Simulated scan of single mutants.
Amino acid sequence: MRQLLHSDDKEIFALRSDAIVNKYLDRKPCKSIDDARDFIGVIGNSIEKKESIYWAITLTGADKLIGTICLYGFSGDCSTAEIGFELLPHYHGNGIMQEAVATVIEFGLASIGLKSIEAYTHCENLGSLRILEKFNFKQNRNDGDNLLVYKLRAIS
Rank of each mutant, 00 (worst) to 15 (best):
residue 44 G to N: 11
residue 55 W to F: 09
residue 34 D to L: 10
residue 98 Q to I: 09
residue 86 E to S: 11
residue 102 A to L: 12
residue 120 Y to N: 06
residue 119 A to P: 12
residue 116 S to F: 00
residue 102 A to D: 10
residue 118 E to K: 06
residue 139 Q to V: 10
residue 125 N to F: 03
residue 62 A to L: 11
residue 19 A to V: 15
residue 55 W to A: 02
residue 13 F to D: 04
residue 132 L to M: 09
residue 88 L to Q: 02
residue 22 N to E: 08
residue 38 D to N: 13
residue 25 L to V: 10
residue 111 S to G: 01
residue 56 A to G: 05
residue 148 L to M: 03
residue 146 N to S: 14
residue 50 K to Q: 13
residue 156 S to Y: 11
residue 113 G to T: 00
residue 80 T to R: 15
residue 55 W to Y: 06
residue 49 K to M: 04
residue 121 T to G: 11
residue 60 T to F: 02
residue 136 N to C: 07
residue 96 I to L: 04
residue 129 L to S: 08
residue 104 V to N: 02
residue 54 Y to T: 02
residue 23 K to E: 14
residue 49 K to Y: 11
residue 142 N to W: 09
residue 103 T to S: 15
residue 54 Y to Q: 08
residue 132 L to C: 05
residue 3 Q to H: 14
residue 152 L to D: 02
residue 139 Q to F: 06
residue 79 S to E: 04
residue 149 V to E: 05
residue 96 I to R: 02
residue 63 D to F: 06
residue 139 Q to M: 15
residue 109 L to S: 05
residue 45 N to T: 15
residue 80 T to I: 04
residue 57 I to H: 00
residue 130 R to H: 09
residue 80 T to F: 06
residue 1 M to H: 05
residue 126 L to E: 09
residue 119 A to W: 03
residue 115 K to Q: 06
residue 53 I to P: 08
residue 133 E to T: 07
residue 19 A to N: 15
residue 38 D to M: 12
residue 45 N to W: 07
residue 118 E to S: 13
residue 109 L to G: 00
residue 39 F to S: 12
residue 148 L to A: 04
residue 126 L to K: 07
